[in-house]
């Protein structure tokens, strides 16, 4: 039972991170029908920005400011850097391709991804950087319930992921911008005819999606400590997978998809075999997609004739 709970916690942390990455994917997809393969690298930049703040304030072992303030600052820096980057990418790599064939921005995105990865390699070097959270916050502190342990940093990460998702939900459901985003996702031309500034909505979508990716980057740094130039690639694939599993374009779907994949990974590694962990996860997903071809929350599109 503790083993189960332990894997549940592990899966939830990982899933929360995947969900945040998937949200960016899914929001952009919902509006532009574009698979933004550079999204993972935006997340990488966010993680590095957080690391930069950490180093600037004296590193994990003896920070010059209180740890809580430091973590907040790291989140802000990561979200800011990623947000700006996302908007810049949209402006220069995607906007010129707004009416191009659907696959063209895909290749453009791949180009951006190559560029960002190697720019990071050039500027920051290839060495793995470590947030060193274990030296900042003792990993053994936190909730302890019998043999089950949840470290304080995991709690922080799970809570902030949930908080960000709630904020996003309110933003999309309750604000004017959210309404405009939903309208644009539903039908871009019609939205434009109703006086919605579609370009601005798209920029806002990229901004929000990238900010979430930046937050995810800092979270990964905090919980899983390692930051390096190539981290966005795998995370991007996972985020993409989560977005599709949830029903691509659907915001609650992306959240659920992320959690589902995180849990599937933790439980398959825990209960079956770590060697075949990926195989099992992919196998499950294949079966799932065959059974529900439009993901968890996807609705069949009406066929226009």
């Amino acid at each position: 039972m503790e083993f189960f709970l332990q894997q549940l916690v592990n899966g939830l942390t990982l899933g929360g991170v995947y969900a945040l990455i998937a949200l960016g994917y899914s929001m952009v997809y919902g509006i532009l029908k574009l698979l933004n393969f550079a999204h993972g690298d935006v997340y990488m930049v966010g993680a590095f920005a957080g690391y930069g703040v950490l180093v600037a304030f004296g590193g994990p072992a003896d920070p010059r400011i209180p740890v809580v303030t430091l973590i907040v600052l790291m989140f802000l820096a990561g979200m800011l850097a990623s947000g700006i980057l996302g908007v810049v990418i949209e402006r220069f790599a995607y906007r010129p391709l707004r009416n191009a064939p659907r696959i063209a921005p895909l290749i453009s995105a791949v180009g951006v991804s190559f560029f960002l990865q190697n720019a990071a390699l050039l500027v920051l070097g290839a060495r793995f950087r470590s947030y060193g959270t274990a030296r900042m916050v003792d990993p053994a502190t936190g909730l302890q319930w019998g043999p089950l342990r949840i470290s304080i940093i995991r709690i922080v990460v799970i809570l902030s992921a949930v908080a960000l998702m709630v904020v996003l939900h309110l933003l999309v459901q309750r604000t004017k911008l959210g309404k405009a985003m939903r309208a644009t996702a539903f039908d871009r031309e019609a939205a434009a005819m109703m006086g919605i500034d579609v370009d601005r909505v798209i920029v806002a979508t990229f901004l929000i999606g990238s900010v979430l990716a930046g937050a995810a980057g800092v979270m990964v740094g905090l919980v899983f400590s390692r930051v390096y130039h190539f981290m966005g690639f795998v995370a991007g694939l996972k985020g993409f997978t989560a977005a599709v599993i949830g029903g691509i374009g659907s915001i609650p779907g992306a959240m659920m998809g992320g959690l589902l994949i995180g849990l599937a990974e933790a439980f398959s590694a825990g209960y079956i075999s770590s060697t075949f962990q990926n195989l099992i996860v992919f196998g499950l997903l294949i079966v799932f997609l065959l059974a529900r071809p439009r993901g968890l929350f996807g609705v069949p599109e009406p066929v226009k004739v």
């Binding site: 063209a104 921005p105 453009s108 180009g111 951006v112 560029f115 050039l122």
Partner: peptide, 27 residues
């Protein structure tokens, strides 16, 4: 810098080339 890092430069230019070519010729 870039001439001293031919391997990284290679990837950087390749990435930039993909973006530029796609933007110039979307089809």
């Amino acid at each position: 810098r870039l001439v001293e890092e031919p391997s990284i430069t290679r990837q950087l230019l390749f990435g930039a080339l993909l973006v530029v070519l796609m933007v110039a010729r979307p089809h």
